[in-house]
Structures are given as C-alpha cells and as structure tokens.
C-alpha cells in the first residue's frame, strides 16, 4: 500500500504556551479509512487542517502525496488542495447558491480564474458535478437552493463537492456530528463507497466510537494533542476508548479548535 499521508512528530500551538498538537506521528495509506477520535479540543480539527495546509504547523513535518505541505508556496498549496476533498461538520455550503454551484466549487481549482468568476465551467465539469450528485442520491437537485435542503442532504452535497475534485484523499471533520442517527450511517456509507470506488484514503475526525468501529479500517485516539492508540478498528478495546474519551479536565470541553 502506498502512503498518502505521512505525518511525523507534528506539533502545533495557537498560543505560545498550550500545544494543540504535541508530537503526532501518523500515516494513512490508499484505501484506508482512518478515524481520529477524541474529545472536543483534543486537536482533531487542527490535525486535519495541517494535512491540507489550512493550518501551518509550528513543528514536525506533514507529507501528503509525497510533498511537504509546509514547504509549498501558496499556489502549490492550492494545487495540493484540489486533490484533497474536505467535508465539514457545518457542511459549509454557500446557502444562497444553487446545489450545482456548490458542487462546482470542487472544480474551481481546475478552471481559469476569470472564467470561473463568470460561472463559466466546461461542459464536462458540469456533467461531472451532476454525476457526483447522482452518486450521493441527489439527482435532479441541481437547481435547488442549498439553504432549502435538510442537514443530511447538505452533507451529501458537500460530499459531492469533494467527489467533484476527483480527490484521492478525503478529510472529514466531524462530518456526522450534526446529523441524526439514521442520516449518520447513511453519510458514512456514502463516504465508504467513495473511498472504495476511488481507492482514496479517508481521514475522519469523530467522537462517535461505534460509528468509527463500523465504518473505519483503523482508529486513532487523540487526547490533548497526543496519540494514545493507533490500531485496526477490530482491535480497539474499551479501555482504549475510555482512556481517550474520559473527561477529567473541564477545560478540554470549552473550545473547539
């Protein structure tokens, strides 16, 4: 298996004192679905954002597709990001745009800036966007307004957006946290399908351990910026989970970073 993400001894701190990530070493290969579980504020979101360069780590290295993310220029980062799909807890759709426009955002880095400003996308991009929508079960929703959709539908549009990027790596930041139980499993199934179909690597952050056990190949525990365990989903013990999800210091709950 080829490694898509190779993180070595990654550290990051927003303020001088408290590190959010404290020496994280992690690798993700093609076809793997890796869940990072941990409490809010454990550093999961920051870890994911270091992978696509939205956050610049203060120490350590993060290599994605065999390139050092931190060493890339701004345009180099954009070229990397277009190969990485990202799904968010809050869906992050543009509410006042159509579903199709939201999916086409996944194609932005592939079209010239000026043409994209006038919403002129190549016909094959539009066809691809429609195909992605059909794949997440939203065929015919192209002209609807994003704000008129339900939470589960919004997240499916967001997945279609990531698929339209033809990404070989998908990052999902608490992608199911805002959804009800049935929608959660549906979304996880779609993510699993996408990963299998494209042989893509998937790195998710979540705190629902049951969901992680069902749909992921590997589970990584993150607590206060440190990895507590990293094992195949079937081998994760209750003790491991308790260790990572135990709430003893109230501060950890306070802010989502």
């Amino acid at each position: 298996m080829t490694e898509v993400i190779a993180i070595e001894n990654l550290t990051h701190s927003y303020q001088a004192k408290t590190p959010v990530l404290d020496g994280v070493t992690l690798s993700v290969a093609r076809g793997e679905i890796v869940a990072v579980i941990g409490l809010s504020g454990a550093g999961k979101s920051t870890l994911l954002r270091c992978v696509n360069g939205l956050v610049k780590p203060t120490g350590g290295t993060c290599r994605v597709f065999d390139t050092d993310v931190a060493a890339l220029s701004e345009s180099g980062k954009r070229l990397l990001r277009r190969r990485i799909g990202m799904i968010f807890q809050e869906f992050n759709l543009v509410d006042r745009s159509s579903v199709l426009t939201n999916v086409l955002i996944g194609r932005l880095a592939y079209v010239p800036t000026l043409a994209s400003c006038f919403h002129r996308f190549p016909a094959q991009d539009v066809a691809l966007a429609s195909a992605c929508l059909a794949q997440v079960g939203l065929a015919g929703y192209e002209k609807r307004w994003a704000r008129a959709l339900s939470g589960g539908q919004k997240q499916r549009v967001a997945i279609a957006r990531a698929m339209a990027q033809e990404a070989q790596l998908i990052l999902a930041d608490e992608a199911t946290a805002n959804l009800d139980a049935r929608t959660k499993t549906k979304i996880m199934e779609i993510i699993q399908d996408v990963a299998r179909q494209r042989q893509a690597a998937v790195l998710l952050s979540m705190h629902d351990i049951e969901l992680a056990r069902t749909y992921c190949t590997r589970i990584v525990g993150l607590r206060q910026g440190r990895i507590t365990f990293d094992s195949p989903a079937s081998e994760v013990s209750e003790a491991d989970v308790d260790e990572v999800l135990r709430r003893n210091s109230a501060g950890e709950q306070d802010d989502e970073t």
Binding site: M86, N92, D95, C117, A158, R161
Partner: peptide, 15 residues
C-alpha cells in the same frame, strides 16, 4: 464556513 470550503477545494482569493 463557505470561505474555508472554497479554500479547502483549492480556490484562490478571487474565487
């Protein structure tokens, strides 16, 4: 949120 999404997809500041 949407700004982050466009940036994460590789969009530049004009986009």
């Amino acid at each position: 949120g949407p700004i982050e999404a466009v940036r994460a997809a590789g969009g530049n500041s004009v986009q």
